[in-house]
Simulated assay, not measured.
Amino acid sequence: MRRSEFLRAVDAEFGARASSLVSDLVLNQLAGRTAAEALEAGVPPRDIWLALCVEADVPLERRHGAGRLEPRRR
């Protein structure tokens, strides 16, 4: 997962709350960092996404493949 895919996934899942969750929610799985702090520290976006999903109780079926764009048609 790329950073852009992470940001799309967070926006799609959390809507108006997305930016505050990224900057304010402490993620226990990431040593007490917020998602923004973890991104700055170089933590892979996929790891951050999964930790955010755990903290926010996102159902398993909405965690995988989130943030990906559909392949281009030729």
Rank of each mutant, 00 (worst) to 15 (best):
E5W: 12
W49S: 14
A36Q: 12
G67D: 03
A56P: 00
C53F: 02
V43I: 14
L60R: 07
A9H: 04
R46K: 13
R17K: 12
E55L: 03
L50Y: 12
R2G: 10
D24Y: 02
L50T: 12
A36G: 02
L52E: 06
R62M: 11
L27M: 12
A36F: 00
E5F: 04
E55S: 06
N28L: 12
S19C: 01
V26H: 09
S4T: 15
G42K: 06
V26E: 15
T34K: 07
A51M: 04
E61F: 11
A16V: 15
L60D: 14
V43D: 01
E61L: 09
S23E: 14
M1V: 13
L69I: 09
H64Y: 07
R3E: 15
P59L: 07
H64L: 13
R46V: 13
S23R: 13
R63N: 02
R17I: 00
L60Y: 01
E13S: 12
M1N: 04
D57Q: 13
L30F: 10
S19G: 02
R33D: 00
P59C: 10
D57R: 14
S4E: 08
L7H: 10
R8Y: 04
R72I: 15
V58A: 02
R33A: 02
A36K: 03
F14V: 15
V10E: 10
P71M: 12
G65F: 05
D24V: 03
E70W: 04
V26Q: 04
D24M: 11
E13K: 05
E70A: 07
V10Q: 07
P44F: 00
D57E: 13
G42N: 11
R3Y: 08
V26W: 14
S20Q: 14
L60W: 00
A12Q: 06
D47A: 09
A35V: 13
P59K: 11
V54W: 12
S20G: 00
R73M: 10
L30I: 11
R72H: 07
R73I: 10
N28K: 12
P45N: 07
A38Y: 04
V10N: 05
